[in-house]
């Protein structure tokens, strides 16, 4: 950031950090609750929010707040894993395409484009079902659809790096290609990677929820937000709004905080943008 940065410009970062910290604490609390949040108690179903149950109970008599916090852990962890794997895969493909032979580029980019040509959610859904519904399958489905996104963006940057002086210099002195890739190109891709990772984290959270929402992600009774929103749908119009609205707001808050954070990372790189 440049010198004109004032506290006024910095507050979004602080706010997003605070929100993210709250989510992490929520997730931590959730891990202590563990299985307890899944135990059904049919004697206290659909209670409205009260002092005892701050966000009420759901159709099976489980405390919505506990489930939202367990869900925070699940969403954050799995989205992080999906994005990390997707980024790693995308990076490898991009390096091979950008620095390797031209035929390699063609061979690798063809399947990338094919995957991009799919309706993303449908592909993730089909993969998740094929592997047997569950969170792991959902993560694999998401990773497969994320890899090409990273690969395409990073490949462009990698290609550009070839004409950069430091890469040309390294090539001239005869360094092996993999060393150039690791020592020079990867750091060059760093900022783009960071921005992409942050941007895809938010969408991974949403896709995960969407998969559970359509019923191919989390298995019941896992407290995943998308599955909870789906549960809430049937109660929403009969008056028990809290079952579906609470996890939705939690999801929204997390993605917004992450996006604000992403913006700031991006702004650091390019002060003019937002």
């Amino acid at each position: 950031m440049n010198g004109t940065t004032s506290a006024w410009r910095r507050w979004p970062v602080i706010a997003s950090m605070v929100i993210l910290a709250v989510y992490l604490m929520l997730a931590l609390a959730g891990t202590f609750l563990g299985d307890q949040a899944n135990v059904a108690d049919v004697t206290r179903t659909l209670r409205p929010p009260s002092a005892e149950h701050l966000l009420g109970t759901d159709g099976e008599g489980r405390d919505v707040l506990s489930r939202v916090s367990v869900g925070a852990g699940i969403s954050i962890m799995l989205a992080a894993i999906s994005v990390a794997l997707g980024a790693a895969g995308g990076l490898i493909v991009a390096l091979a395409c950008g620095l390797g032979a031209r035929w390699l580029d063609r061979v690798l980019m063809a399947p990338m484009n094919a995957v991009l040509a799919f309706p993303q959610l449908l592909l993730a859904m089909a993969i998740a079902i094929a592997l047997g519904s569950g969170l792991t399958s959902a993560v694999i489905g998401i990773v497969v659809t994320i890899i090409p996104v990273f690969a395409v963006t990073l490949r462009g940057e990698a290609l550009r790096s070839r004409s950069e002086a430091f890469v040309e210099a390294a090539t001239t002195i005869g360094l092996p290609r993999w060393r150039i890739a690791l020592r020079h190109v990867v750091p060059y891709l760093g900022t783009t990677m960071t921005v992409q990772i942050a941007a895809n984290f938010g969408s991974a959270v949403i896709t995960l929820a969407a998969l559970s929402y359509v019923g191919v992600g989390a298995r019941p009774p896992t407290a995943e937000w998308g599955a909870m929103i789906n549960d809430g749908l049937q109660h929403a119009v009969s008056g028990q709004w809290w079952v579906g609205v609470a996890p939705g707001i939690a999801l929204l808050g997390l993605v917004i905080a992450v996006n604000i954070f992403t913006d700031q990372v991006r702004a650091r790189r390019r002060p003019a943008g937002w």
């Binding site: 899944n38 298995r219 019941p220």
Partner: peptide, 24 residues
């Protein structure tokens, strides 16, 4: 889905761990 959750909680009491599989 609701029934499976209740069954799961009930059978846990007697030492049966039910894992629910949602199938297309």
């Amino acid at each position: 889905k609701a029934l499976s959750t209740v069954i799961q909680s009930a059978l846990k009491e007697i030492g049966i761990n039910v894992s629910v599989r949602t199938l297309t």
